[in-house]
């Protein structure tokens, strides 16, 4: 998991499919942004089928995290800097 492993994170959904993870983010968060695969969030480059959706809520980012042997996780991590970058540059879809 790289640096994410060292951060304080909450797992909202685990060992699911990528599409289910995307639907979960779309359904449960009001502010949702679209990014492309390879988008850098914290110190990881996001893996996924476009469009990759990232939710924003109360200073947290909610995003899909794909592990080769364990499928997709939806993680929630507190952040400030990356949220600002998302809001400025990426298309809001929700």
């Amino acid at each position: 998991m790289g640096c994410i492993e060292l951060m304080e994170y909450e797992i909202l959904l685990s060992d699911t499919t990528y599409k289910e993870g995307r639907e979960f983010i779309k359904r449960n968060f009001k502010a949702v942004y679209e990014v492309e695969p390879g988008y850098k969030l914290f110190d990881v480059y996001l893996i996924g089928i476009p469009p990759i959706l990232i939710g924003v809520e109360d200073g947290y980012v909610i995003f899909p995290y794909v592990k080769p042997c364990h499928g997709t996780f939806v993680l929630k991590i507190k952040d400030g800097e990356d949220i600002g970058r998302l809001i400025k540059k990426k298309k809001k879809v929700g």
């Binding site: 996924g48 089928i49 794909v66 080769p68 499928g71 997709t72």
Partner: peptide
């Protein structure tokens, strides 16, 4: 499923 995500 993860393999499809890597492919995309």
């Amino acid at each position: 499923d993860a393999g499809i995500s890597y492919l995309a």
